[in-house]
Design a protein around this nucleic acid. Structure first.
Length: 422
RNA sequence: GGAGAGGUGGCCGAGCGGCUUAAGGCGCCCGCCUGCUAAGCGGGUGUGGGGGUAACACUUCACCGAGGGUUCAAAUCCCUCCCUCUCCGCCA
């Protein structure tokens, strides 16, 4: 959520920031409604003050045994006026809150201006992207050949976009999760195991609701949602809390499955493991002191890159432009791994700084020192990594001419010593 | 799922229509005293919004789980909902 005071004091900045994100909002209405509400509240406050003073007079008279009927009549009338104006104020305030929740975060000044993904900037590339000297099979072919991936079974059990990993494929998935969690623990993150179903407040807190409602699996009878990322439960651990400044940063890592309806994204790039409705992911979340959040973003990015390097997968780091930035993000880097079978860069991680956008929604504050105003923390998160596409990349990038798949050395201890699939 | 009890400031805990714009305690901060430490003494210490200030000061409104209602006046009375605890039932 944006700071109402910022919207009031510097509307131009807010309008420009939102425009650069290339989304339609009712920012104009918000600005007007904010003014209107302030005026209503001022009026209401004055009347309430009068009521408080005069009511105290009634109490004083009664104690003195005097008659207060005249004041009674006056106050009865005053109270009715207050009630009327309060109703107006409540209505305006509810409408304003609703609209405020639909405004996206503003991009950080360092974010390149651009209208869509074609304007993203490649920050750096790691590893060699070489032309393979044999025909690399796409992951769904090599996966089915090696009996580690069973797409048909997934369709049968649930439907399109759901997959079954079997045998060493399932082991590989588990190995990756364990490897990543161990790595992030060593990087100083606290491992947490969290619910995969969350309430509405949590979804609003991290910014998935109200905007992304259609992408969410929703259990109506309990009004609970399947998480699209561990970011949601993990960040909301801190909801409605005050953290002493000297306890920051707080760093968490968590494994979770992620559920995404992917409404309206059928068609391209959906084969095999490229875009599925349920995938596993290891996530990192940081809750940090505001002044440090951009340094923390860089180190978060480094922590994610280490995973890809350990898996010996070539990747590049994209700096998202304003138009491609997600709703809640102020700045974001995507990590894309090269997959020679499909000849594509696959997004396997996204590292974002939300500044105080989520903290305002979720009410995560820093315990203030004497005489200071409360400040909100900054929150960040990054995948480290999303499994489905990582597995796709391993199946393709580490494929051998003999139709086997080499397990990266760092992963072998997690694979019961196996050095190859097949 | 059934029955009962309860939700008050960072924590404990009183208040159950107006002398509470939340008593008292703990914790925390500042000062005093004590050759260190502990104890003791004095003062301060919630959140959010508005006005005000260079910044303070100051001022005002709201907040006692959430939302509605009664009343001139609600932490206090009424209604609805949520949550926690205890006991019972069911169950992996």
């Amino acid at each position: 959520m944006l700071d109402r005071r910022l919207i009031r004091d510097d509307p131009d900045k807010v309008v420009k920031g939102i425009e650069s994100k290339n989304v339609d909002t009712e920012i104009g209405t918000v600005i007007a409604l904010d003014k209107e509400l302030l005026a209503i509240q001022k009026q209401s406050e004055e009347l309430k003050h009068e009521r408080n003073v005069k009511s105290a007079e009634v109490a004083a008279k009664k104690r003195a045994g005097e008659d207060a009927d005249e004041l009674h009549m006056y106050l009865k009338n005053l109270s009715q006026r207050i009630k009327d104006i309060e109703a107006k104020s409540k209505e305006a305030s509810a409408r304003l809150d609703e609209l405020l929740l639909t405004l996206p975060n503003l991009p950080h000044a360092s974010v390149p201006i651009g209208k869509d993904e074609s304007d993203n900037v490649v920050r750096r590339t790691w590893g060699e992207v070489t032309e393979p000297y044999f025909d690399v099979l796409p992951h769904w072919e090599i996966g089915e050949k090696l009996r580690v991936l069973d797409l048909e079974a997934g369709r049968r059990v649930t439907g399109r976009g759901y997959i079954v990993l079997r045998g060493d494929g399932a082991l590989l998935s588990r190995a990756l999760v364990n490897f990543m969690l161990d790595l992030h623990r060593d990087q100083g993150y606290e491992e947490v195991l969290v619910p995969y179903v969350v309430n509405r407040g949590s979804m609003v807190g991290t910014g998935q609701l109200p905007k992304m409602a259609e992408d969410m699996y929703h259990c109506e009878i309990d009004d609970l949602f399947l998480i699209p990322t561990a970011e949601v439960p993990v960040t909301n651990i801190e909801r409605d809390s005050f953290t002493p400044a000297d306890e920051l940063p707080v760093k968490y890592t968590a494994y979770s499955p992620c559920f995404r309806r992917e409404a309206g994204s059928h068609g391209a790039d959906t084969r095999g493991l490229l875009r599925v409705h349920q995938f596993d992911k290891v996530e990192m979340v940081k809750v940090v002191y505001p002044d440090d959040s951009y340094d923390e973003l860089e180190s978060l990015l480094d922590d994610a890159c280490v995973v890809l390097e350990a898996l010996e997968l070539p990747y590049r780091v994209l700096e998202l432009c304003t138009g491609d930035l997600s709703f809640a993000a102020a700045k974001c880097y995507d990590l894309e791994v090269w997959s020679p079978g499909v000849e594509k860069w696959l997004e396997v991680s996204s590292c974002s700084n939300f500044e105080d956008f989520q903290a305002r929604r979720a009410n995560i504050k820093i315990k203030k020192a004497k005489g200071e105003r409360h400040r909100f923390v900054h929150t960040l998160n990054g995948s480290g990594l999303a499994l489905a596409r990582t597995i796709a990349a391993i199946l393709e990038h580490h494929q051998t001419p003999t139709g086997r798949v080499r397990i990266p050395a760092k992963l072998v201890p997690y694979m019961q010593g196996k050095e190859y699939l097949g």
